[in-house]
Design a protein around this nucleic acid. Sequence first.
DNA 1: AGGCGGACAGGAAAATAATCCTCTTTTGTT
DNA 2: AACAAAAGAGGATTATTTTCCTGTCCGCCT
Lengths: 221, 221
Amino acid sequence: MFSHDRIWSAIDALAERHQLSPSGLARRAGLDPTSFNKSKRHSADGRERWPSTESIAKVLDATGSTINQFMEFLRPEVRSSGMPEGAFPPQASTIPLLGFAQAGAGGFFDDGGFPAGQGWDVVEFPAGPDSRAGVYALEIQGDSMLPLYRDGDVLIVEPGAQIRRGDRVVVKTSEGEVMAKVLMRQTARSIELLSLNPEHPNRTFDMSEIEWIARIIWASQ
Amino acid sequence: MFSHDRIWSAIDALAERHQLSPSGLARRAGLDPTSFNKSKRHSADGRERWPSTESIAKVLDATGSTINQFMEFLRPEVRSSGMPEGAFPPQASTIPLLGFAQAGAGGFFDDGGFPAGQGWDVVEFPAGPDSRAGVYALEIQGDSMLPLYRDGDVLIVEPGAQIRRGDRVVVKTSEGEVMAKVLMRQTARSIELLSLNPEHPNRTFDMSEIEWIARIIWASQ
DNA sequence: AGGCGGACAGGAAAATAATCCTCTTTTGTT
DNA sequence: AACAAAAGAGGATTATTTTCCTGTCCGCCT
C-alpha cells in the first residue's frame, strides 16, 4: 500500500521528472543535499528512515508539484506480469446510496437531480479493497445476450470473487468456449447454468469441463 | 497546497470518517494516543509539528484507507454543496479490456481465470475524470424491473451525463415519481420512455412534467 | 592536465517527532 | 448519581530525521 520503498521511489521519480538528482532535489527544496541519499534511507542498524512530511511539502513547493502528481508516483507499480501495459486497478471510494423506493420522496435531490440533503447512505463503488485483484472488462459483441446485455456493453469481471447461486458469471470451458450465464447450481461434480437470453437453453457441464468461472460484478448501461 | 494545517485536517477527517477521535485513531494505528492531540501540533515555541510519513502510513494501514482517500482529505475544501456526509467520489483507474468474442481464444487468461498475456486493451473504470460529479447509487427494491434489475441490485447514476436514445435512465416527474426506463425519444416538448419490464407499458410525458433525468452508467450484477 | 562543482557515502551533532507519564476533563454506562 | 473509560493538555525522555561536516569519485570546463 503505502510503504517506505514507495515513498522513496516517489521522491526519486519526482526528481527525475525535473531533471534533478536526489541531492539536487533536496538542494532545490532548501534541504541539505545529502538528505535523500540512498545511503541514508536505512539507518546503521537497518531501520527504515522515512522522509518527513515537512520535507515532502518543501519538495512539492520547490518543484511546483501538486499532491496529485506526487500521489501518482506513490502508487504501487503494477505487480502481476499478466497485467497489461497501462492497467491500473480501481481504488475504493464511496458514493451516496439511496433505496429506489425512496428516491421519489422530497429532499434527496436538488433541482438539477444531484444528491442533496440528509438521509443518504454511502456505498463503496467500485467494490471494497479486498476484492479488486485481477478485475477486467469484457465488451459484449452481438445481440445474443439481450435484453440484459446489449452490443457494446462492458462487463466488469472479477476472478476470485465469491460466487453464489443466482450470480451472473463468465465461464470458460476446456473446449475454449466463453459464455455469460447465471449460476443455477454447482456441486463438486457438475454445474448448471441458466442462459441470460430466455431463447437459449440452460446448460449443464461436468466440472472437469470447466476451466474457470468468474463473477460479473458490474455491467455498463 | 500542501500545508501543515491541511495535513492535520486530513488526519482529523480520516479519524472522523472511521468514527474515531484523534486519540482513538492513533491508538488504532499502534501509536501513542496522545500523538495527534491538538495541543501537540505546535511546539512550545510555536513551531509547527508535522506528523511523520511513517505515522501516516500506519494510520492508513490500520483504517484500511488508500492514499487516494487520504489525498482527498488533503485537498483544500472546495466542494460543499450537495455532497452527503461520507461520500467520496470514485477516482479514475484503468483495467484490462477484451472483446467477449475473443475471450475464448487462448492466451488471454491464466489457469485461475486472471488476465494474462498480450492483446488486452485497457478501459477506464469507473468512467473518466470529467464525468463523475454527483454520481450516486440507487438500490433496486422489488421485482418490477426484472429481468434486467433484480431486488438488491445497485444502479450507479450520473446526473449531468450526456443522454442519448436507447440509454437507460432514471427519471423523476414533478409528481414525485422516480422510475428507471430506456429513453426512446426526446424532443423539446416531450419525452418517450420504454419500460425496462416488457409487461409494463411505455410512458410518454410532457417535458414540463419532468423534473430531472439522469443516466444509469453501471448496474451491479 | 588541473580545478571546480555536483553526486553520494558515512559519521557526529542538532533538531524534531514519538513515546511515556501524569493529571484533568469529558463521555458513556450502570 | 457514581464509576470507569476515553479524550486531551502538558512535560520529560527517548527515538528518529535533518543538518553539518568530511571525504571520495566523477564529469565538465578552461
